[in-house]
Write a protein that binds this DNA or RNA. Sequence first.
RNA 1: GGGCCCAUAGCUCAGUCGGUUAGAGCGGCCGGCUCAUAACCGGCUGGUCCCAGGUUCGAGCCCUGGUGGGCCUACCA
Length: 691
Amino acid sequence: MTKVLVTAALTYANGPAHLGHVLEAIQTDVYVRARRMMGDEVIFMWADDTHGTPIQIRARREGIEPEQLIARVYKEHVAAYDGFQIGYDIFYTTHSDENRRHAAAIFEALRERGDIEVRDVEQLYSEVDQMFLPDRMVQGTCPVCKTPDQDGDSCENCGSTYRPTELIEPRSVISGDTPVLRSSEHLFVPLARHEAFLREWLTPAEQGGTTILQDSVRNFVLDWVDKGLRDWDISREAPYFGIEIPGFPGKYFYVWFDAPIGYIAATEKWCADHGQDWRDWWKAPAGRGEGETEIVHVIGKDIVYFHCLFWPAMLNAANYTVPSRVQVHGWLKVNGEKMSKRRGTFILANTYLEHLDPAYLRYYLAARLSCNQDDFDLAMDDFVARVNADLVNKAANLASRSIKFLNSRLGGTLGPVPEDGAPLLAAAREKLAEVPDLYRNFDSAKALRLAMEMAESCDAYINEHAPWKIIKQDPERARAVLTVGVQVSKLVAAVLKPVLPQWGEKVERMLELDAPLTFANAAEPLPEGLELGAYETLAERLTSKVLDQLIEASKEDVAADQAVGAKPEPAPAHDYEVPPLADEVSIDALDQVDLRVAKVVGCERVPKAKKLLQLTLDLGPLGQRSVFSGISQSYEPEQLLGKHVAVFANLKPRKMRFGLSEGMVMAAGQSDDAVTVLELDPRSLPGDKIS
RNA sequence: GGGCCCAUAGCUCAGUCGGUUAGAGCGGCCGGCUCAUAACCGGCUGGUCCCAGGUUCGAGCCCUGGUGGGCCUACCA
């Protein structure tokens, strides 16, 4: 039996899990469940990644300690992943004794080899924040092209890169404070010394290597090695929420040093709880044979650098088991775009769970995920169509029509497999035989496609022999035909089970199986005379209405998360100017300007105009009006449709080149591409006076 | 600037070693059926295989150069 240790990337504990995290969790979970169904001994080790500056900043913003933040987020993450039925063995934390010990052990091993160098580094330090500022926490004016408000590492205007210390007028993103240059000692790992090992680890199978990587990933990493490996700075100065480096008081491991060690810490904790020895997993030779461990990491393409260079090198240097496989996936996009908080496509895991069954997303993701690292587009209409077509119309329908018919009209007893049904069943079993290797190679898309083909051809067979007609003359023949449907439903359930565990369990009950489905026992025929259990609904139709609700709820939930703790922030430094206040006036002045509530009922771009949108406004009893507004660089027309806005309603109509404008929509902002329209509570009544 | 990856029907994807007229599912349109969750069946619809060259008797597939998208990285090939 192969020992397999699988991990999904540790979830960063500075906020709730979103569907991007869920994609990886599901891909990993499907793999783990499938390998268990192959008979492998698999443990799924997982944890929260709890250290580093972003955690400190988030905690500070909320006015709590980092420990409180990570404890709360931990619960949220566990709830989210449990909700998606992720079958991890342990979800641990990098803020643990186990992690401190293994980090220290790996560090000591590196030090004994002479793989730790100490050098002075000059960095920006903020007196107000009392900390060294990472590159991304500094903004200032680009030293090359003088564009203001650029990040600490590169300029988005001229594209040049630089050190944060080169910025003109640098300031802390956290407090707005002007940081000063300060020197401190940092610890470095000279990665170049590990080049020989890394080249060996990266060797493709055709050349005798054993590590499984996607070709694109391997090329990618080899390219870095070829360019020359740079020293890796593994230390950060206090205050830093993390693990203090043994022998270097006031210095902490950079979060990316201790994060992957969390895989080991989780394993040790799990082993302690289950009477096992973690050394059997992390001190065994890497490999797929007896007495060896196969370590499989599932990660997103953003962290290949850490998992395919530093991590194997560290493990090897410290004599731990190195990964056998790193499986890389792309980003989750929603409706063809990066997840957007404004459009409601930034969907939190827990928001999803409040609105729909995790089975839908599990199926849809698995049905489209394969071994590549392309980005994954979750298109809502395709989601609905695919789930209904495959899961409901094909797979569930086959089981439903077969089992229900047998139960209601033939006493619920299976017959023999008829001669004309045997080839179909044999073909389906041949397909099943391909499935383990497909799952083993993360090609769940193809595995599920095979399941749908099985269901489809069996469905055609039943249609052809129309048991509902035959039953009158030859009930036993009808029974035999439907028996094929049940036999194939068992095979389909086996393929679906890693993706839809509950589906598998329902079929196990309906078919009165005495052992849970595996790929091996799924191929065994169901015995003639078997008495079926009651039919259980396998999948219900998905409607796009539910998804619309999900999108709406996501907007609110994301806003709520961002608002958490936003208030305790002391008056922040402002990096923009506003016009001075006008002279004081009496309240009578307000009477001159008649502001009204208006609902946007029409909105379109004005051809040939650079900035104009033409709005049709409904002012309730006051009727409709046409108003031009110079906001097209900030709004797409459809964004405004249906919104309630404030309109300067007694403004003298003005003839413009493109038509008559009968009012003025209130908006804020100084530059053309950053205008925001005043949106009113949708409960307000069109035409009502604003005062 | 350099590197890597991706591109086939409206959508999701197959397409073997280079071999006939490039396929499937979904969608759309028309008709039929009903055991089954508006399921199911038949028919129709749908393609500049990203573009341009090249190799070949023959290219979706191989080679070169481009375009678009994604990612990484930086005076180094």
